[in-house]
Each structure stands twice: as C-alpha cells, then as structure tokens.
Simulated scan of single mutants.
Amino acid sequence: MTASGQSSNGQGGASASLHGGTVRRLNLNLLYPLDAILHAPTLTEAGRRVSLSQSAMSHALRRLRDHFGDDLVVHTGGEPQLTPLGHALRPEVRRIMREVEGAFNYSIAFDPLTTTETITIAADDANEQMLLGPVLRSFSTLAPGLQVNVIPLDIERPDRSLDQGADLLLLPEHMALDGLETMPMLTVWPSCLVWDRHPEFENCVEITEAQYRAARHIVARGEERQTFALDQNGVDMLRARRICVRATSQATLPAIVIGSDLVATGNSWVFQHYAALMPFKVFEAPFARRGIVTVAQWPRNRHDPVLKWFILQARSYFEQYYKV
C-alpha cells in the first residue's frame, strides 16, 4: 500500500478516475446523443431519435468532440462519414446502452396478462412467417398486451440487427454470434415444395436426384446465401438447378408454385405449414444429410423477465410440433 492508502498496482487511481474527474466532467446523458450520432444518417435524424432539437444535438456533438479530441463524424461530399474513432466507438457505445437499459429495465416481477412491453425480434423470412402466425396467436390470451416488433435479420452481419434495436435474434446455428445467450429452438430440414397435382410428382412419395436435376425450379430472394448441410454432390445439385423463376420472398412462393410445374427448395418447417393449408406436397430434398438447428440469441446482460418468458413460451410451442 502507498502512503495515500491506494494500491500500488494503480487500481486505486483508476477507481478515483471512474468516480471522480473524468466521468464527472462528462455528463453521462451525452451517451444517448452519442449513440444516436454514431448510428443515424443525419444529425437531424439523430436528434429525432433522442427527442432533441437540431441546435441541442449540435451542442452535444461539440461537447463530445471536445471530450474525445476527435470529430467523430465528418461530411465528405455531403455524406456523413464516421472517423476511425467513431467507427471504433459505435459497437462499444451500443453495448453500453444495452447494459444501461438492461439495468433500468431489471425486474423480478412480471405478469404476462398485464404487460404492455414491446419485444423486437430479428428473423429471416421463414421464421417471420411462423412467428406472425401460429406462435404469436398462441400468445393472444397469455399476454394480450405484449407488443411484438419483427425486423429483417441482417443475413450478412447478424450483429447489425442488435444495433438496429433487436432484443432477440432467430437464426441458423451456424450463423450464431459469440458472446450471446443461446437456446436451440427447432430443427429444420432442406425440403422441396410442389403442387400436389404436379405432372411429375403427383403419384410420387419422394423426389430422386435425377428428378431434382431435371425439374424447373423457383428460388426466393436470398436463398442462394442460405447454407444447408451438404456434401459436394448436394452443392453441385443446387448450383446446377434450372432456375426459371426468382421470387421476392418465401411468402410469395405458394401463389407461384400452386398450379405450376415448379419445384421450390427451402425450410421444411414453413413448407409443411403451407401444405397443411393448401394443395401442396413436401418431399425431403435429395441432398439432405442432417437437420439445421434454429437458435434464439440475446445479450447476456439482459435480465428482462418479459424476454425470457417470451423465449421459453416460443420454445415450448416449437417442442409441441417440431423436433428441437
């Protein structure tokens, strides 16, 4: 110990800085405009997100620039560009904001019948269809005031969905992010969807490799980026498909496939749902080798009982109808 009573390893000095000069000189309320400035396309939009006028945001930006000794954001050719420090701060500030919100939203008391909270879920097209259908219908009596907001999952960078405000991610296990709580939700298989009076498959109980290669195919937007559990033969089969129609999303596939000779390849979970409602047949894809696990992920610092209740209820629903 030093004469001042501080540890010789410097921790006492760090504590003094944390509780004293550095933090006290910077109003912690500036975290909110800082987060908005680092994520919004314009200063005006940043102000709108935190309910501050443009002049108030300009003042906040000046204070932040003085504190960091950096411009944080500059305008090049009329377009805002983050400085290297701004880019480095972006995920850190968002992480801190999630932790702050988690602390202030912390509660051990929760009544699903009376809650009016909102949960934001990032999901791909297939999971969104099912969430907005049977899963959420099961919540209508359990938590009638719960509000659910579904946003598109960023396939290329799922972590960006968290930056966009997602509380929960639903995504394939191979895309799961490190450092998040993870829970398996269900297992799906690559499958083929055809009209039940398809001239080639009306009386078939399976689709062979030769039939698959000879068929006319339809694909949904983004399907090429999906990864199935394939051997090289399966990869070759997908690449060699004769794609005749490219649809905007999986949601449009039924209206196009019905009455046609097209074959759609995708999520067995969604295709079985279509077949239960419309005249379709679902076959296991001839290249399927193992199922793909869909997982739920959420920040480890979130201790929100509403979120955990939602996750457990959704998983319980999946377990009733699908192999998890």
Rank of each mutant, 00 (worst) to 15 (best):
R25M: 12
R94H: 06
S55Y: 04
S260P: 06
A176D: 06
E319R: 05
V235M: 07
K308P: 08
Q164Y: 11
R246Q: 11
Q313C: 05
A296R: 06
D236Y: 12
A3V: 10
I96V: 15
H198E: 06
S316V: 15
R239F: 01
T227S: 14
A166F: 12
E223C: 07
P41L: 04
E209N: 08
S4H: 11
P254V: 02
W195N: 03
P134E: 15
V235W: 01
P84H: 07
A229R: 13
R65W: 05
I256F: 12
G259H: 15
N267Y: 02
S55C: 04
L31P: 02
D124L: 07
T118D: 05
E117K: 11
T114K: 09
A264W: 09
A251K: 06
H39M: 15
G266V: 03
Q232T: 00
A36T: 10
L28P: 15
T265N: 00
W309S: 09
V73L: 03
L85Q: 11
L31Q: 00
H67K: 12
A14V: 11
A247Q: 07
L82S: 14
D66Q: 11
F310E: 05
H303I: 02
W195G: 01
D125Q: 12
V295S: 06
T294S: 06
P80K: 05
R246T: 08
V50Q: 11
A126P: 00
A215C: 07
A46C: 01
L64F: 06
I155C: 13
P184W: 06
A3C: 08
G291H: 01
D35M: 01
L238V: 01
R246K: 13
L85D: 14
L171V: 02
R302K: 14
R197E: 14
